[in-house]
Design a protein around this nucleic acid. Sequence first.
DNA 1: ATCAAATAGGTGAACGTTCACAACAAACGC
DNA 2: GCGTTTGTTGTGAACGTTCACCTATTTGAT
Lengths: 356, 356
Amino acid sequence: MARRRLAVTIKHVAADAGVSLQTVSRVINNEPNVRPEMRERVQASIDRLGYVPSIAAQRMSGSKSYLILALNDRERTIADWRARQGTDWVDQMLLGGMLECAEHGYRLIFELVDTHEDHLERELGAALAALQPDGAILTPPHSDNQEILRILTRHHVPYARIGALGDEDGGSPAGVRVSMDDEGGARLATRHLIDLGHRRIGFISGPAEYRLAGWRVDGWRAEMAAAGLDGHAWLEAGDFSYASGARAARALLARAAPPSAIIASNDQMALATIEAARAAGLDIPRDLSVVSFDNTPLVRFTTPPLTAVDQPIAETTATAVRLLIEAQREGATPPPAALLPMTLVTRSSTAPPPAA
Amino acid sequence: MARRRLAVTIKHVAADAGVSLQTVSRVINNEPNVRPEMRERVQASIDRLGYVPSIAAQRMSGSKSYLILALNDRERTIADWRARQGTDWVDQMLLGGMLECAEHGYRLIFELVDTHEDHLERELGAALAALQPDGAILTPPHSDNQEILRILTRHHVPYARIGALGDEDGGSPAGVRVSMDDEGGARLATRHLIDLGHRRIGFISGPAEYRLAGWRVDGWRAEMAAAGLDGHAWLEAGDFSYASGARAARALLARAAPPSAIIASNDQMALATIEAARAAGLDIPRDLSVVSFDNTPLVRFTTPPLTAVDQPIAETTATAVRLLIEAQREGATPPPAALLPMTLVTRSSTAPPPAA
DNA sequence: ATCAAATAGGTGAACGTTCACAACAAACGC
DNA sequence: GCGTTTGTTGTGAACGTTCACCTATTTGAT
């Protein structure tokens, strides 16, 4: 692995602008006593060269680190988090990744990046130059952002892409992919219902622009087909919102041959479904079984608590961290992709169908 | 503000062990070609002096940074977070602090610390030495951990304590305190119910070992007293768990003179309360009004959605960050403490009492 | 015994930035 | 005009660590 010596330093800027290092430093730190024209000239060089001061070096010579630590009780935070058992993106991602990092002596830094226009290049570049991380983890929708991938590559930062689409990059060695098995999760839910005896299983899909929404439909359809059931009739489109879920559920229940079970592509739509069922005078799970996707804390406190497909979000970042760290070891060649299985959490919203 | 030159460096270790810098470096990095006895001697010095390598310096000379960046779509994360509008500790704290940091060119690092025994001194010390942050934010239960405060002080890291108990430290200049007005929140909820015409307002408290549980009771009691109502009769003790909430709610409803409204000290107990009321054949809000505390996402999707007191958790870290940064500015003397008001989010679980 | 290799340790430079101080010019008071 | 301040720029050292290279010692094969 070649040493990276590409960073543009204060020295380059000084040479470019024809001034001393100190003058550049003064401009950077907005110190007084620099002639405006000089300041302008230096700033121009900085902008043109895309120079960003290195936090490490700044820290070395006694300046600020521009870092603030948020200290949290490890045990308690973990306990809380486990207790919740649910799927809150930020929480789960952050903590899953952090714990894995801690085990290897690494540290995870959560960074919000703004993809707006020119911001991206500057901000992300600044973050990379300042922190000089050993790796980066991309979450949707960044995972497929070519611009970001380009910048990371240019800075020689290896990355892991979570929930990335596919192999468009013909096996670029820098990138690892980690995904959750949405299709498998949907199959799990469907099979559970089939095993209970259901034949007419409805599905409320997510918005088409989310790939995972499609995969979930695919899983349901595949499992229905495998059981010789109709994987087309009881499909209604939603968009992950409560309102769309309510609409879809009402439409399904109003059918001439209504489903005896409904799988909703996310929790909010599942909540809407049980509410719609209740409004229609149906008892859950006696008259209608409902399975949810995501397993956020929400669905544990509904009446009845929902059977749900759980996403391994925490494992997602944990795996990404592990793969990144392994890849650092000379000679090691970790797998270029990992697919994490989903699990089904059975609660009381599913039962055998009325007729059975 | 005096320059800090207290850190123990590789040089001190080398002198102490009577070897060269390079040998110490070799030991640190577990490189081969060091005699076991030598390695042991150096390690002893390292341990005794409490030496921790500086990430900044390591990074300078081309080694790893041991940092991994988790990149997240800023806009989307913020949108998600706002949409949720709820109170998930980690999420809210992290994002509130991060956005404030970003505005000032700072960066927030979330760090789990293990308070177990000797770990604390070493781990926290390592984190501080490695990252050399400009400030630290403590959350409960760390906010009152004297050991942690001592270590921070020794490393000259100014800190902000969130939800800290009190002024035991006779105005130590290093510390800022940020708290949420639990009592005020409880008053808000109580006043809301009084304004609706309720006279018998029940209160389900949290566990005594949490100070905030006491403050919430105080607020209810104070407001009841101010309205000439009985602030003792309708109190039942809970412990923040669903089960304890159910028990307390049943007890309140079984009274000879049951309350027409109940305030639960947290969301889970509020959920238990509406479930208990429903089991008792009561309609909410027609027969019983319920107000919840915390306002987690849970209470927006119950039937009916709950009126709740919202905790300004995000503002808590944001304020801490702001105060820490302000304090850095030479000559500035920010207030030593901030008390953030809670707000009442009115939904459909509260209405005038039946008789009124 | 002799020479090559391996092992154990040390030395000086480098990393990118800021600090303390020196140097010089311009502006000012008298 | 002269000394003094004020504003502007440059110079060398320092921060804490690792890297490349060098020197001594030990080991092993011939």
